[in-house]
Structures are given as C-alpha cells and as structure tokens.
C-alpha cells in the first residue's frame, strides 16, 4: 500500500485512481484491505467555511466540529453525529459518502438543496443557503453517538430522510402534504419515500413503523 498526502487540488487530481480518497479517515480507512493505498485530502487545502449574505460555502475537508462552530443552525444535527472526538476528524465531504444509516449531514444538505462543487471526480465543497426555518430530529438507540433509526431534516418546504433507505431521500409526497399545512398527512406520506433495511440497530419494520412519528415530531418541533 501507499499513503499519498497531496498538498494541492492539482496534485490530488493527478493521483486519482492510485488509491482510495480519504479525508477524516473515520469511515472508510479503518476497513480498507491491508494492501489498499489511500490518497489523503488532509493537506489539500480544501478546508474552510465562507459566508456571504445567506449563502454558506463549505470546503470538503472542513471537519464537522469546524462546521458546527461556524454555522449555528446545523449544530443540533452535527451534535447527533458520532462523538466530539470523531467530529474533530470527520469531514463534510466524507459525510456525503457515509453509507446509511450514517450520513446525517448529507440528509441535512439534501433538505437544504445544497450544491455540490466538483473538480472532475473530486468533491471540493458544498454550498447552501441558510434557511428561514429549520427542523431536525434523529432517532437513535442511545441519546448520543449512535447511528440513525430515522433522521428527518426540513427547511419547512423540503423534507429529507435518513435511516430509512440505502441513500438519504427526499420525501416528495410528504412535502406536498406539508405545503397544504397537513403535518399529520405529511408524516404518513413520508412512508412513500422509505425503503428501509434491517441492521444491528433496528429492523426495517421498526424504521417504517416509527417514521411517521418522527416526521411529525420533527415538523412540530416536538421532542
């Protein structure tokens, strides 16, 4: 194996294909086969948060801790992801690739209709507008540091779900109900977007059964 630590985007692009891209090393790195090489983005200069008006631009290797510091409305969501020690390492870009039931920030970015910046195959950052309203809830097996059973993120218009399908999904039918002001209807309609799975945390049955509960709670800001 080899460990590449490129110090510029150009250098990263030149190395593409010669190993697995890693940033925070919290997700993929510990499970790589013993022979696999890696390309670390840690020193590629992709970190940072810029705010211009209501638009936020986040570099791909910005850590979750940094993002929470700079963008207050996302703090609750970020606090629901892993532990502070992991959040000090895990990156915004990496979270986009975290397999469900992980990737709660990706669920938020979907609800925010965030734009992904790329340079070739490399994700270099994301940008989104700070929403006027923000709803977020994550049901998990323990109060902190646990994967998602159901994650719900919404700006009051778009509704994105985590934990209930192999990818973060938009709940379009639920959004239509929400537009009519029908929160209970939205909660039930969220099921149309769900294609849940069994894992060590919960069964598909349970995720489906409690999805409407958590959508309703998220949209009514109930605990």
């Amino acid at each position: 194996m080899q460990v590449h630590v490129p110090t510029s985007i150009d250098e990263v692009l030149g190395l593409m294909g010669q190993g697995t891209i890693v940033a925070g090393c919290t997700g993929i790195f510990p499970h790589l086969a013993p022979t696999e090489s890696i390309i670390s983005l840690r020193k590629a200069g992709l970190s940072g948060v810029e705010t211009e008006g209501d638009t936020v631009r986040v570099g791909a290797t910005t850590t979750l801790t940094q993002l929470a510091r700079e963008v207050p409305f996302l703090r609750e969501a970020i606090a629901s992801i892993a532990s502070p020690t992991i959040r000090n390492m895990a990156t915004v870009g990496g979270n986009l690739f975290a397999p469900q039931p992980h990737g709660d920030l990706a669920v938020c970015l979907l609800a925010l209709d965030a734009e992904i910046e790329r340079n070739g195959d490399l994700v270099t950052g994301v940008s989104f507008k700070v929403p006027e309203q923000w709803f977020y809830t994550k049901a998990m097996r323990r109060k902190q540091n646990s994967a998602s059973i159901v994650t719900v993120a919404s700006d009051g218009t778009r509704i994105a779900l985590g934990g209930v399908a192999r990818e973060p999904v938009r709940a379009l039918a639920a959004e239509a109900k929400l537009a009519e002001g029908d929160i209970d209807g939205a909660a039930e309609a969220a099921l149309e977007a769900a294609d849940p799975f069994d894992d060590a945390y919960a069964s598909a049955w349970y995720r489906r059964r409690v999805l409407p509960v958590h959508v309703r709670r998220a949209l009514t800001n109930a605990v």
């Binding site: 460990v3 925070g24 790195f29 510990p30 532990s83 020690t85 992991i86 000090n88």
Partner: peptide
C-alpha cells in the same frame, strides 16, 4: 482499531482524536 471505543484518544494540534484512525503520514 476502528474508532468506536476511544481508548486511543490523543490530542493532535490541540484537538482530541482517535489515534487509531490517523495515518501518521497525514500529520507530519
């Protein structure tokens, strides 16, 4: 060895990290 127990917690540049997840080349 996979970042789930915290017994390897150290500080790198002042922040607590799981040292089992840090390829040492990346923190030269």
């Amino acid at each position: 060895g996979v970042g789930t127990c915290g017994t390897c917690t150290c500080h790198v540049d002042g922040e607590a990290v799981m040292s089992c997840l840090v390829p040492v080349e990346t923190i030269n």
